[in-house]
Every structure is written in structure tokens, then in C-alpha cells.
Amino acid sequence: MTRFLMRRLAYTLATLLLVSLVSFIIIQAAPGDFAEIYAAKKADAGAVISAAQIAEVRRELGLDQPWYVQYGTWLANAARGDFGQSWTWRRPVGAVIAERLPLTLAIAFATLVFMYVVSIPIGVYSAVRRYSFGDHAASLIGYLGLAIPNFLLALVLMYLSQRYFGQSVGGLFSPQYSLAPWSWEKLQDLLQHLIVPVIVLGTSGTAFLIRAMRAAVLDELDRMYVLSAKASGLSPMQLLLRYPVRIALVPIASTLGWRLTYVISGAPIVGVVLSLPDMGPLFLNSLLNQDMQLAGALIFLYCALTIIGTFLSDVLLVALDPRIRLE
């Protein structure tokens, strides 16, 4: 058990290191370095900048060093939470992201909970009542859920709620709560606003999980142990929940890491469309404005979130299913 965890942890750390290298390459690959952007900004403001001054700034920031030294510096600073300066926000990147990270995490977590809470009962139902009306309806919705792009679903829901409920779904707080201190009402307001992003982000994952759960339960229902349990007089509901569903849950739970990757991957675009105050709009704007310090840090965070999440789900799985430890 400990050995398994140690190996997994080492692997996770190695992956994180690789991701940091990718993020750094993306920062570096953008045309123009920080000193040139700085000079261009100054020149826009009317100041005269000489080549010597640019070289000066470059030396101050360590941009004249070879790339691996720069990478080392960047990584060492990043480990302490210092991702450099964002020139669009004129503030440290770390501080800009810190404001938005909690909401990103909240949305991702709520989406995961939503996906599993909705898909497991529906999947079990579809398996037990195979080829019933409900089963067909579930698989139809499942197909559609896989085919609709996230942003289109967000647009449609936004349009419908604007038109028929007269309520805007953009943002995460109603105007009267956005600056108010935390209170019970504010939390309720937040939860109400979370519904649409969670549905949008969770639909395709839910569709996938329903199909997986249905197949897993169907596999178990034909087993002999189900027959023998039935013969020994267990009530159908008790039997279903105690044996086939429990076994079918293991492969479903094992995809938790992948689901998380999908949710995180879809999050930026949904954040942009619904104008949520999470990392999404920040990321898109940083890319459009070539604010690469910020963009690189955000890419690193997005990847780190999925990698750490996958690690946690692996640990959870080992706790859930002892058979995996033997591998």
C-alpha cells in the first residue's frame, strides 16, 4: 500500500515537472519577450526608450540568461507562488489568479458531484428496466449530451432563461450580493447561479457515465450469484443495491480522474460564455492580449489541477477496491 502510494506520488511529481516545462515553453514561444512588451508600452505612453534601456531591463529580469537558467528561476519562483507580473493587470500573476481559483475549484467540484449523483441512479434504472421507455429516453439524452458542444448548450440555456424567466444567468452573484460579505443568503444566491454552469459542464460527462453504469450493471445482473441471492429470498431492491450496483460502482469510480480532466478542459470556454468570475475569461483574455506570464501560469494550474485530482482519485480507488493494490 505504502509502496504503491509512493510510486504514484513520484509519478505525479514527475508529471507536474513536465507540465511546468510545457507551460514555460508556451510562455517563451510567444513572439516578443517581457522587455520588448514593456518597451512598447512605454513608447505608447510617449516615453523614448533606447536599445540600451531595453537591454538593461532584460538583464534585470534575467532574460539574457540561457533558457534552462530562466526555467529554473521561473520554477523556483512558481513553487513559492510567484508567477511574475501580469502586464495587462499590472499586478502579480499569483494575486490575480488567487481571486479566481476558489470559484474554479467550486465549479469543478460541484460538477463532479452532479455528474455522479445524476448518472448512477439513471444508469442503474436503465440497466434494470432495459429497453423500457425510460431507458430509451435516457440513451437519447445521452447521445445528445455527448454531441452538444459545451458552449452551445450554455448559449441555449442563457437564451431560454433570458427569454422565459427574464433572469440573466451570467456571473455567479446577483448584483446586490457581489460585494456583500458572506452570509446564508449569499450562499443561496451562489448555488442558484451555479446550476447552469454545472449542468453545462456536466452534461457530456453524465451522458458518458450513464452509458458506462448501464453496461456495468447489465454485466453483473446475469451472474450466478445474483440468481442464488434471488433464490435465497432477498428482496429485489436489497439485492440490487447490495451486490451488482456495488460491484459496478468500481469501474465507474475509476474514471473519476478522466472525468475531472474533461471538466477542467471544458471549464474555460463555459466560463467565457457565461461570463463567470472564474479562471476562464482570465485565460482567454491573457491569450488574446499575449499576456504570456499569466497564460502560462494558468495553463500550469489547469494541468496541475487535473494531475493532482487524478492522483487523489487513484488513492481513493485503492481505498475502495483492495484488488488494485496487488497489481
Binding site: 513536465l18 507540465v19 510545457v22 514561444a29 495553463i299 494531475i307
Partner: peptide
Amino acid sequence: EFIRSIPTLPIWLALAAMLP
């Protein structure tokens, strides 16, 4: 495994944004 474990859309967005 590494490519699978990272979220694709942010990487795609970043690469696309780098095109001149």
C-alpha cells in the same frame, strides 16, 4: 499517459493563440 492526463482545450487554445 501524460498527454491524456492534461486538459486538452487549454493547451489547444494556447497553441492556437501563438499563431501569428
